[in-house]
Amino acid sequence: MSSVPAAGSLAVRQAELVAALVAGGPTPPGFAPAPLAAARAALLRKRAGEVARHWPLLAAGLGPNWPATFLGWAAGRPTNGGLRDGWDLARALHTDHALPALGADELAVREAAFRYDGHRPPRPRRGPALGRVGGALAGQLAGRVRLLRPAR
């Protein structure tokens, strides 16, 4: 649509609703708060499952702390998909010295295989590359990626 949607139109109200659910926006007028809060929480749980599928070692490394760690990071932060969400979370945890060894191994392998600037979708690296995350070291040559040294 080329025209700007009118305030109160369905387009605007759908956008307000999505913002309230995934981006920390205010509850739109007229919606019952409790069901909307339940929906917000359910969306975060579903997202946590998707990220854990893309980043199984990260989730396993955090163990019982995985749900709370993910929910604390993701609340109010819209998704960029499970791959990028997990990547951003792993980098944030690494910066905070809170990335478990398994997560560091997984991140090192990904960093060796893909170029990811945090803004656009990751792209496979063409040339040989190393991925280093703390003590974890991964190498990529001709598209084959190996963890050379695990973190401890």
Binding site: A15, V18, P78
Partner: peptide, 24 residues
């Protein structure tokens, strides 16, 4: 609907049961 205003909801969201939504 699953996205609006440039944001992905990540899940299926309900529509208002209005004639406008039926048209959409």
């Amino acid at each position: 609907f699953v996205r609006a205003g440039g944001l992905e909801a990540g899940h299926l969201l309900p529509l208002p049961r209005t004639r406008e939504a039926v048209d959409v």
